[in-house]
């Protein structure tokens, strides 16, 4: 039995055959056996994998005691060390869906193993885990079990063996929002001309890139008294100390850097330069303050127009850097600035 991959399964009280709504308050338990859908699921694994146990928890209990439930579940998973984790399918059951989603997300984040579940497209749990899990699209009721299990088993086998996962349509999962690069038969210009002809004839066509939607943040309150305020300087213009000690990438940055500038009057050359790969670096390398004006801020500090320039200067490269990374950098830098008691921030971009 050793070369089979190991699956740990999660179901609620109903599919765990404990009972209906009246049993929704039961605490999580673990059984070293296959229960409910886990049985049918395993039969679809074609002997390539096995279900080593089933976790069962009442839907109400989970949603009312999320932390305790998650910690119980995670302990079991860590101890049993499955290769893959499967939950549900939850169909359109809201509390069950949320439980599956929360657990899937926690397992993916903490254990880094593949997770599979099944849901109806409108299940409220979907958004919590659609990025982390492969969520097989199911009908809205348990009548869809017979259709859902084979798809869940098929993708589980592929994930366990590290095989390439096909498109959402082929595999039956709900798109995770990942932009996957592929090589296709027709070159881009030909696809563009074909799209154009369809558009001109009034035929249906499908864009290859739906436009992004950016969320917004309420403006923070203004600084009351600049002369007492600490101002931090940040840039996405790639200004770094000579030698780029933290190896910040010239494009598609994966990290940011912070440098103590408390003893400096300026970010002058040749102590600083730009590592940004997206613009002509000549002018920035002559006078790095043209990108990140530390010199001027220090003057304002001396003149008393502002209270203080923050001791640290924060920097990264903006070019080709994914929005997700930019969000991560902003969150990390913001946290530091908040803790340092910074009152306002100037961020320059190239």
């Amino acid at each position: 039995m050793s070369d089979k991959f190991k699956v740990l399964y999660y179901v609620n009280q109903f599919f765990g055959q404990i009972g209906g709504e009246d049993k929704a308050g039961i605490e999580p338990e673990f059984r070293k056996e296959k229960v409910g859908p886990a049985i049918g699921f395993e039969s679809k694994l074609k002997s390539e994998g096995e279900v080593i146990g089933t976790l069962i928890c009442g839907d109400n209990y989970f949603n009312e005691h999320k932390e305790e439930s998650l910690s119980f579940v995670m302990d079991v998973i860590k101890k049993e060390a499955p290769d893959i984790f499967v939950a549900g399918p939850a169909f359109n059951a809201g509390r069950y869906g949320v439980a599956c989603a929360e657990i899937c997300k926690a397992v993916a984040d903490e254990m880094g193993i593949p997770v599979v579940t099944g849901m109806y497209i409108e299940n409220p749990g979907l958004d919590t885990c659609r990025k982390e899990a492969y969520v097989i699209e199911t009908s809205d009721s348990a009548g869809g079990m017979r259709k859902a299990l084979p798809s869940m088993a098929k993708i589980t086998c592929k994930l366990a063996k590290g095989l390439e996962i096909g498109s959402p349509e082929e595999e039956g999962f709900i798109a995770r929002g990942m932009r996957k690069s592929l090589i296709v038969e027709k070159r881009g210009s030909l696809r563009a001309v074909e799209m154009l002809l369809k558009r001109l004839k009034g035929e249906e066509f499908e864009t290859e890139m739906p436009m992004p939607v950016f969320n917004i943040v309420e403006p923070a309150a203004a600084i009351k008294d600049l002369s007492k305020a600490t101002i931090a300087l940040c840039t996405s213009g790639g200004i770094v100390p000579a030698g780029n000690p933290d190896h910040i990438q010239s494009a598609s940055a994966q990290k940011w850097g912070k440098y103590d500038v408390s003893g400096r009057d300026a970010l002058n050359a040749p102590d600083f330069y730009t590592t940004h790969g997206g613009y002509d670096p000549v002018y920035a390398n002559e006078i790095p303050d043209r990108v990140a004006p530390l010199d001027i801020l220090k003057e304002f500090e001396k003149e008393g127009y502002i209270g203080k320039v923050n001791n640290y200067f924060y920097t990264t490269t903006g070019t080709g850097t994914s929005v997700a990374n930019a969000v991560k950098f902003g969150t990390e830098i913001g946290k530091e600035l908040k803790e340092a008691g910074v009152d306002g921030v100037i961020l320059t971009s190239t």
């Binding site: 864009t207 436009m211 992004p212």
Partner: peptide, 30 residues
């Protein structure tokens, strides 16, 4: 597109509702 190494990020630096017919030539961070 600049969708990040994992492909999970937004593809463009800007956005416009008028852009309804767009050919994508891949994620530069793939």
């Amino acid at each position: 597109e600049c969708a990040g190494r994992d492909g999970m990020s937004q593809p463009l630096a800007d956005t416009a509702v008028e852009a309804v017919a767009v050919v994508s030539t891949g994620n530069v961070s793939h």
